[in-house]
Design a protein around this nucleic acid. Sequence first.
DNA 1: CCAAATTGCTTGAAGCTTAAAGAGATCCCG
DNA 2: CGGGATCTCTTTAAGCTTCAAGCAATTTGG
Lengths: 164, 164
Amino acid sequence: MMLDSETKAVELPEDHGTELRLWLRLLTCTTLIEGEVRSRLRERFDVTLPRFDLMAQLDKVPDGMTLSDLSKRMMVSNGNVTGLVERLVESGHLDRRTSETDRRVQFIRLTKLGRAEFRKMAAEHETWIADVFADLSRKDISELMRLLAKTKASAQRSAKARTP
Amino acid sequence: MMLDSETKAVELPEDHGTELRLWLRLLTCTTLIEGEVRSRLRERFDVTLPRFDLMAQLDKVPDGMTLSDLSKRMMVSNGNVTGLVERLVESGHLDRRTSETDRRVQFIRLTKLGRAEFRKMAAEHETWIADVFADLSRKDISELMRLLAKTKASAQRSAKARTP
DNA sequence: CCAAATTGCTTGAAGCTTAAAGAGATCCCG
DNA sequence: CGGGATCTCTTTAAGCTTCAAGCAATTTGG
């Protein structure tokens, strides 16, 4: 009759404590590392993490990208990027020019200064991250990569299911 | 003579691309899930994630805790907690009373309303998280738990080494 | 071709967050 | 005791972040 199992699913909440603990642990790790990176960026280079992240996106491409691309890649809102870019143009790290073919679009790229400064920061940043994960073996790391890829796919599936 | 290896360590930067990719993947997973939880909390309960987190900390203890405890547990700054608590007291979810023995200290706890609302939200929240991780097997989950515990320890060691 | 929908970006309000400075209370130790 | 160190919390300024509304340019479909 299937009634029993369906009733149960509705009335008795299942135990999902394990997943919850996993999520909290994931969050703790990220918060911890993020805070560490934030502190070091501030004290070594007097730069904020969002600005570093934005420059990291731009460093990958020589010809720049649009604000929308940035917003998608950084997984933050459009308005957020507008403000960040504004401040980085102001400080001489970024360069913006309007597209010739579509006057809505702006291409943003690193200036010479911006790229030079970013490269210096990135080199050090990489060593910090290496140190953060230094107690993990090669096998640990590749296993973690695999499981996080699976997690990402699962989370995307879950998010998509809600907003079709 | 050891000179070769030491020289190399200083002049030729080692490749830590793997750790960097791992960190970015970790960050992506967290951002993705966090955004999803944030959206759902907003649309279902019109509450922000920081407020939910704060209430979650308080739900664990019946007699409340101090602002400092909250700040440590939530891994955010003191001033941040001051503001969050202020708004939640304002909305009737929290209760604050000054310690009798130490007039610097304030004990914060959930009001009846606050606890009731939190419990409702938490129950649903748990099912969202379960769904986020639904594509992972039991073994995946326990393995991920283990590796994240190791990551957390490693990150803490790394952070401590910098600030003794 | 034109109106409607879509796209790219900006703006504004509200709230979150941090770092740093500071006020008040308590603790420690000489 | 008493005075400096420490602890708890608040305040402030600056910046980050989101959501929602809005503007302008482009695309789409009659």
